[in-house]
Design a protein around this nucleic acid. Structure first.
Lengths: 146, 146
DNA sequence: GGGCCAGATGATACCCAGTCTCAGTGCGAG
DNA sequence: CTCGCACTGAGACTGGGTATCATCTGGCCC
């Protein structure tokens, strides 16, 4: 998970203002463990009586997404969610019990893509890879609990 | 691309009725080369003066998705699109110039997932893999055209 | 410190995809 | 024939996301 400071730094570096609503939004994001939807953030802000407009929340997410410190993932249900993460190439593994998201590295995936590209003549510019299942913690919990 | 007949067959086999609106929807889908959105289909139906309700189009897509003859993919823009395809496990490669979608097989991807699962203790139940770029035809066209 | 102004904000209206509801409609079985 | 059930379509509704626009403010320059 990206820390609050990582985000503010990224913002400043890209020449954006550090305004109160943005700082608040970033704090809310940092406080979340796993993926969150825009609606989650709005609800959080509401619950804490931060007077942040809905539009501003969306803009903040957009901005952070542009800077690469949050990323949009598409849940199997089709919903859009976001996760805070390092601004580097990686993929996400989402536990559908606890909702936590883990970043995973390449693990040979790159060569698979290269292989496919080579075989088909396709030039791959972008890709999306997301894994869904149960994280180790939840698996452990399940076998001991029941 | 799944042919019209493949879809009707799948429908019948699953014990669903072959109604006129469904057949019409399937013909529209079969007529499309690449991914399409639900709105595309509705527009197509409208253009051809087929009197198919919006709800019916969505239901037809849902149904075909359940049967595995169309699949939902998430474009990089975040839009939901659908593609007709074989009812087998595979992934999609979408050309963002001509819009055509190619099915690709496993190509060693399975073992990458297994490797990740092994390293992290995560149990992977589902995954999403989509590639975006330029297909061989479009690449060829581009180099000769300009 | 004070003024300036582009960039940021938030209230609101709006748009669009997808779902729900419900009164029909028509096919197939008996 | 007629009964039931799957299916249909019109329209209302929901929820995520965007556009508009008057107002505000962070941070720079003096």
């Amino acid at each position: 998970m990206a820390h609050h400071a990582t985000m503010t730094e990224a913002l400043e570096q890209a020449g954006h203002r550090l305004t109160a609503p943005r700082l608040a939004a970033m704090r809310l994001i940092a406080a979340r463990e796993g993926p969150f939807t825009a609606a989650d953030l709005v609800a959080d802000a509401d619950a804490r009586d931060l007077r942040i407009g809905r539009a501003t929340v969306f803009r903040a997410i957009d901005l952070l997404a542009e800077l690469g410190v949050v990323e949009r993932i598409d849940l199997p249900s089709g919903e859009h969610a976001y996760v805070a993460c390092r601004p580097a190439h990686h993929h996400h593994m989402v536990c559908d019990r606890c909702g936590r998201s883990t970043e995973i590295d390449d693990a040979g995936f790159r060569s698979v893509v290269a292989e496919i590209a080579h075989r088909t003549g396709f030039r791959v510019d972008a890709h999306r890879l997301e894994l869904f299942g149960r994280c180790a913690d939840c698996l452990a919990g399940e076998t001991t609990d029941r």
